[in-house]
Design a protein around this nucleic acid. Structure first.
Length: 131
RNA sequence: CUCCGAUGGCGGACGGCCGUUCUCCGCGAACCGCAAGGUGGCGGGGAGAGGAAAGUCCGGACACCGAAAGGCAGCAUGCCGCGUAGAACGCGCGGGGGAGAGGGACGAAAGUCCCUUUCAACGGACAGUGUCACAGAAAACAAACCUCCUCUCGGCGAAAGCCGGGCGGGAAGGGUGAAAAGGCGGGGUAAGAGCCCACCGCCCCGGGCGCAAGUCCGGGGGCACGAAAAACCCCAUGCGGUGCAAGACAGAACAGGAGGAACCGGGUUGCCUGCCCGAUCCUGCGGCGCAAGCCGCGGGUGACCUCCGGGUAUUAGUCGCAGUCCGAAAGGACUGUCUCGACCGCAAGGCCGAGGCAAGACAAAUGGCCGUCCAAGCCCCGGCGCAAGCCGCGGGCCGGACAGAAUCCGGCUUACAGCCAUCCAAAAACG
RNA sequence: UGCCCUGUGGUGUAAUGGUAACACAGCGGCCUUUGGAGCCGUUAUUCAUGGUUCGAGUCCAUGCGGGGCAG
C-alpha cells in the first residue's frame, strides 16, 4: 500500500490534510513564484519556498484549464491532495509548497503521479531524512 | 424475428481502511487580529453533485440605481385557442391552413379528394424604397428571336407554289431560365387571345358551422394580384437600466491640496426634452486600506416534487355597467361595482385533499485505494436456425457514457455507454 | 461567476445576396556560375451543422474555438 512506498518510515499517527495546511493566500503564491526554487517533470511542476522558521507547512495545488475540463481537473487535484496528505509530516516546518499540474497529468494514473511527486520532492530536498 | 425509429423513465449496486466540507451533541480551553471577528484540538451522530450541475439562448425571483417622467432610437416577439384572469417566456399542449415524402380513389389529361408520416421563425409585397446575376426576344406600367397569319413588293416558275424583303395582327407552339404573367378541354378566328363557355384555381359578396385561426355551401367577377420581408421597411404587442464581482454591515488606517459654481459645471441608460444637484456640494489629483472579514448564502421553505382520491364549489379578478381624469380623435388610465348578467377544457393542465423533501464552498468539500457482484463489449465452447442471427445456472479478457453545484428558480438548446417500458398506422426495405 | 466582442489561404486585410480579391510568406519553374531582385505558375470545406433563397463568405438559428471586461 501507500505506506510501504513512502520515502521515510511513516509515524504511527494518521495522515490528514486540513484546510489550515492549504496554501490559500494569493500573496503566498506570489512569494513562492518569485522567491522559490522550482523543478519540473513530465506531469508536474513543484516549487518550494522556506522563509519562515516555524508553523505548519502549507501546500497549494494549481490545476489550470489547460489540464482539462472540470471533471478532469478535480480528479487530478484530488489525487495530488492525497499524495500531499501522506507525505505532509516530512515537510520542513513553515515551508510553502506549490504543485502545478501539467496537461499530461490528466492522462496519468495514480501510481505515475506518485512516482513523479516523490522524484521531484527529493530533488527539492523536501524530505530531509530521505535526502 | 431482428435492425432502425418515436415517446417516457433510469443514469451501476454492496462493503472495508483512510481522508474532506457543513452541521448537531459532549469534552476541552489554545492560536491569529488594532478591532469587528476569525481559526483550531479530542470523541460520537447526521448530511454532502446532475439529467443535463454544461452552453448562457430566453424568462423571472431578488438586489441596487430615485425623474424608474415623456419622446426618439434600439431590441424582441408575430396563424388561432388554452395552460396563464392563481409568475413570465421566444416554453408546453391541442387545433388550423401550408410545404415535403409515401400510398389510395376518381379522371383521357391537367388535377382534385382521402389516408399516413415529417417539417416550419405561417402579420403585411396595392404604404414606400430597392433587388431578381447568367441565360433568354422579353424578368415586372411585359415582350416579339424562330415560328404562325392578313396585306403587299421583288425574283423564279406554265401553274400550284417556293425564296427574299416590307407595313401590320397575334401570343398558341419552339427555345432560355429558379421563375415567362391563371390551368385544362371545347367553341371561335386570317392566325390567335378569358374573346366566349364548362370544370378547377384566384378575387369579391352573402349565408351555415366553429370561442377563434378557419372551413363548407351558394352567388358574382373574367383574371386585374410573380418571387423574396431569415433586403430595408410598415403594422401590432412587449421591454427603465444594471446585474450576487448586484448590494448590505462592521471596524481599522490616513493628509490633504487644487479647481468649479446659474449665459457655468456635473448627474440622470444611447440621444433629445425635461428634471435633479452645486461649498454640510461637485470634479480631478494625491493619501490610506484591499481582492481581507461578515451578511447576502440555503431555508419549516417553495410559481418545489410525488402519489392516490375527489368534485366543478368558493374567493381574488376579468368582461359588462357607472363616475372622474388625460387625449384633437381613436382610445387610455383610475375609482366604484349596491343590485343584475357572463366565466374551465378536445387535450395538456389548473383547483381542493394527502404525503415527501432539500449540498452549500470561496486557491473553492462531495475523495484515494481495494474487494465482491450486476449489466454491457470482445474472443472461445455448446445448442437451435437454410441464413442473418438467437439462446446458455459454460469459460477467459477488458471494464464503466456525457460530465462537477457557485444567489435561486421555470424553460430551451447541446453532449451522452448502456438498460427498462410503451408504441410502430398506411406502405416500403433487409435476411 | 456574470457580461461583452470576434472567426475568410501560413500571416495581415478585401469582397451592393451572383466566378472568393490583394499584399507578404511558402513551394515549383524561368533567368543567373550561385544567391538576391524580377517574371510565370501553385496553395481555401470562407470555424462546423442546419435553415431562408433560384443562388449564402454575406441573412437567420444552434454549436465549437479565440479574445476581453469586472469588487
Amino acid at each position: 500500500m501507500l505506506k510501504s512506498t513512502s520515502p521515510a518510515t511513516p509515524p504511527p499517527e494518521r495522515f490528514r490534510f486540513p484546510k489550515s495546511a492549504h496554501l490559500r493566500d494569493g500573496r503566498d503564491f506570489a512569494r513562492v513564484r518569485e522567491g522559490g526554487k522550482a523543478v519540473q517533470g513530465r506531469l508536474l511542476k513543484l516549487a518550494l519556498f522556506c522563509p519562515r522558521t516555524g508553523g505548519v507547512a502549507k501546500v497549494g495545488i494549481i490545476t489550470s484549464k489547460r489540464v482539462g475540463g472540470a471533471v478532469v481537473r478535480n480528479k487530478v487535484r484530488r489525487r495530488l491532495r492525497e499524495l500531499v496528505r501522506h507525505s505532509r509530516a516530512h515537510f520542513p516546518p513553515g515551508s510553502l509548497i506549490v504543485a502545478i499540474a501539467k496537461p499530461a497529468a490528466a492522462a496519468a494514473s495514480f501510481d505515475e503521479l506518485r512516482e513523479e511527486w516523490l522524484l521531484l520532492a527529493r530533488r527539492l530536498s523536501i524530505f530531509p531524512a530521505a535526502a
